[in-house]
């Protein structure tokens, strides 16, 4: 494993029962990169993210995060920040915005330890970054979906993780909130944090914020800088779900978009 890669997929396949969800994913994500993952609903974006955090076991192949398989690297778990798709929460759960964000420190603190001054500082800073410090005392159940999403992003930030995975963070949010999330991604990129952000909604995605785009539809369709990947042919391929290879077959049935140390191979 090279230290320059945060995530490495080696011929990774995933099945739910008999249904193939991800097929032969072979991918390297370099440190500090800002990746946008696009694909239609059901294309395996969430499954890919869940595989990175160890919630899905591979059918074939392997995924390594920071050089270790996710389920075996409990001690490194807090290094992965994960913001899942917005789901309905237990609105009656008596917990404040501040307490939810403090949960992000639990993995780092470890058992039998109580939050210290520096943990409170990190929580406040995280809330400030998502502009939620003013309503830190409000119960989470009283917030709108967009506000809850920002709180969950703050919880992931409070982990002070080196890798942040955001699954459809902009879905259902108003345009200013979407914009503020993309601005936050840029700041995180400047801080050297690797981010992976998924979306099925091309209109909601502001490509300029991403260094590289991963087009996914069960398998990797393309991976590279936006200007090279976002072509009508590749987008049609990604969103039409036509059998691969279709549009992008070169002589040996392999697509390679190479830039720096990134390579993606689909066969």
């Amino acid at each position: 494993m090279s230290d320059s890669f945060v995530i490495e997929f080696d011929h990774f396949s995933l099945k739910y029962g008999d249904r193939q969800v991800l097929k032969d994913i072979h991918l390297r994500i370099p440190k500090g990169s800002c990746i946008g993952i696009i694909g239609p609903n059901g294309s395996g974006k969430t499954s890919l993210i869940r595989s990175i955090v160890g919630l899905n076991k591979p059918y074939q192949g392997i995924v390594r995060v920071f050089g270790e398989q996710p389920r075996r690297s409990w001690r490194r778990r807090h290094q992965i920040g994960y913001v899942p798709q917005l789901k309905s929460i237990n609105k009656e759960f008596p917990i404040s915005v501040y307490e939810v964000v403090m949960l992000g420190r639990v993995g780092r603190l470890g058992p039998l330890h109580f939050p210290r001054k520096e943990d409170h500082q990190v929580v406040q800073e995280s809330l400030k970054r998502v502009k939620m410090l003013d309503i830190a005392d409000r119960p989470i159940g009283q917030l709108s979906g967009g506000q809850q999403q920002r709180v969950f992003i703050a919880r992931a930030l409070a982990q002070e993780s080196k890798l942040l995975l955001l699954d459809e963070p902009a879905t259902g949010l108003d345009i200013p909130t979407q914009q503020s999330i993309y601005e936050l991604l840029e700041q995180l990129h400047e801080d050297g944090i690797t981010t992976l952000t998924t979306t099925h909604d091309l209109l909601a995605l502001d490509f300029h914020h991403f260094g590289r785009i991963l087009c996914l539809n069960e398998q990797v369709i393309a991976f590279g800088p936006p200007e090279k990947v976002l072509t009508p042919a590749i987008l049609t391929q990604t969103f039409s779900g036509l059998p691969w290879p279709h549009h992008l077959v070169d002589e040996d049935s392999r697509l390679s978009i190479k830039e720096d140390s990134i390579s993606c191979t689909c066969s």
Binding site: L55, F93, I95, G104
Partner: peptide
Amino acid sequence: LFFKEFVFYAFDPEMAEVAG
């Protein structure tokens, strides 16, 4: 002793698992 862990698990079991 495990108050914060049980609270995390009760509020969001999947994310508690992701957090280690």
